[in-house]
Write a protein that binds this DNA or RNA. Structure first.
Length: 440
RNA sequence: GUGGGUGUAGCUCAGUUGGUUAGAGCGCCAGUUUGUGGUAUUGGAGGUCGAGGGUUCGAGCCCCUCCUCCCACCCCA
């Protein structure tokens, strides 16, 4: 037997899981604070439900097999297509429909740094509304998540499919070649203008005359979002689709400014995601410190996808956060909360005879809502304190013979190295005051 | 999936032109005389050298195959 987890799949040991759960709690809180309730769907879907939604490339990455009833099934590849299935299957749902879903998805890709075959996505979607308010709301939620996670130095780069369509038209592409062109455009800042020019020339049907205008539009885009919009309307504003996109982004920009998050969102005409089903706004989030790590949170407007099951177009917009990638990034940057124990306080076990006193105190602490751990056997105090210190437990309570007689406890702050004799009630108050656990 | 690298104690790594019982630091465990941590000090446990085959009198070191992880391409959360 090979004792090894599958390639691209990973374990989270308790210490890491505590950190990951703290992140997930934050994400959940932010979603609910913005009025989104949770949805849960199965890990497995009929293959038909998932097939034909991700393009040929995506389809090859599905984990697909036959179950014991010989049903052709596949593991969910994302959370958006299952959402579409739910909307089509449950006629009682009315719009606008909001939901969030935090769940693992599976993709049989080649694993790499920050890329796994099993990873948890955190999705919020707003279905049934096509408006600047809906667009802006996604960015409001997205920035709130990043802020709640304590992440400084990130940028949500925002674009619109209408801009991309106009750029394609500049080089004479309408349908064929668009995908190849947009892929190159997406890599523009990586490969540079010269490589872009030479590689773009190989796309069949391309009109080289427009390439410089595209480069001018993208490369000369200013930093400031407002200025980008002005720049875009002078360069491609005569294109009616682009004009519409610019107008929408202007309306969104007003709401971002009103929300105080405009600084975190930057309009960037080279963001080309949305090769599959995106129809309007698209966005990707990069960490300033790890630009090569890939997007940690992205999404966009997809007004056509839900119609595949419903038989009519339903506008929708969503955003998806990859918690495992973000976790890996924060770990690399050493930005994760270092606490490795959920306990606020450890009650030492002074002696076997006094174990009862420790258990009694622990019971009272827990009744007061304090996360409490009792050292599980009688060893010298030195050992017990060492354990508390290594585990990052901030307080230790010792009840020895003297304390038991006096009805008190020794209350020690591990961080400050100070100790005082208190009543248990006083100790409980002290812990409740100082601990900085997030309120549930 | 393609190309390049990598793989030695729990972790980070050393290991000389192939030559006897494979090392260090950190971590772990136990002491430094018995009611208290982070420092110091002493001792200890722990490795079929990624797996399998081959060359050789002899392989951690050379060759082949497979696997892992890393980097690039590709794609994405």
């Amino acid at each position: 037997m090979k004792v090894q987890s599958l390639k691209g799949f990973r374990d989270y040991l308790p210490e890491e899981m505590l950190q990951k759960d703290r992140m997930l709690d934050s994400v959940r809180q932010v979603f609910e604070r913005h009025g989104y309730p949770p949805l849960m769907t199965p890990a497995l879907e009929y293959s038909d439900v998932l097939l034909g939604k991700y393009g040929d490339d995506g389809e090859m990455l599905l984990y697909r097999f036959r179950d014991h009833g010989d049903r052709d099934v596949a593991m969910r590849f994302d959370l958006t297509v299952p959402l579409a299935r739910v909307l089509a299957e449950h006629g009682e749902i009315t719009f606008p429909f909001r939901r969030y879903q935090i769940a693992p998805v599976w993709r049989a890709e080649k694993p790499a740094r920050g890329r796994f075959r099993e990873f948890v996505q955190c999705d919020v979607d707003l279905v049934g509304v096509d408006s600047a308010a809906a667009d802006a709301e996604m960015l409001v939620v997205g920035t709130a998540v990043m802020d709640q996670l304590g992440i400084e130095g990130y940028q949500i780069r925002v674009n619109h499919r209408g801009i991309l369509a106009a750029l394609c038209r500049l080089v004479g592409l309408t349908q064929t070649g668009e995908v190849a062109f947009l892929r190159l455009l997406d890599k523009l800042d990586k490969i540079g203008a010269d490589k872009f020019r030479s590689q773009v020339g190989e796309i069949p049907g391309i009109d080289p005359a427009g390439v410089d205008r595209v480069l001018g539009t993208v490369l000369e885009a200013p930093e400031d979002s407002r200025q980008v919009l002005e720049h875009l309307s002078t360069t491609i504003g005569n294109d009616s689709v682009a004009a519409e996109a610019i107008a929408r982004m202007e309306a969104v920009q007003v709401l971002l400014e009103a929300s105080g998050i405009a600084a975190s969102c930057r309009i960037d005409p080279s963001i080309a995601r949305g090769l599959s089903y995106y129809t309007g706004l698209v966005y990707e989030t990069y960490l300033d410190a790890l630009p090569g790590f890939g997007s940690v949170m992205s999404g966009g407007r997809y007004d056509g996808l839900l119609g595949m099951f419903l038989g009519k177009d339903v506008p929708a917009i969503g955003i998806s956060l990859g918690i495992d990638r973000l976790f890996a990034a924060l770990k690399e940057l050493d930005l994760l909360d270092s606490r490795t124990q959920p306990a606020d306080v450890m009650v030492a076990q002074f002696s076997e005879e006094l174990a009862g006193a420790s258990f009694g105190a622990a019971a009272q602490l827990r009744r007061a809502g304090i996360h409490t751990l009792v050292y599980p056997r009688e060893v010298k105090l030195k050992k017990q304190l060492q354990y508390a210190q290594k585990a990052g437990i901030p307080f230790v309570i010792v009840i020895g013979g003297d304390e038991q007689k006096a009805g008190t406890v020794q209350f020690r702050s591990m961080e400050q190295g100070q100790q005082e004799e208190l009543s248990l009630t006083e100790a409980i108050e002290k812990i409740a005051q100082t601990r900085c656990r997030d309120a549930k």
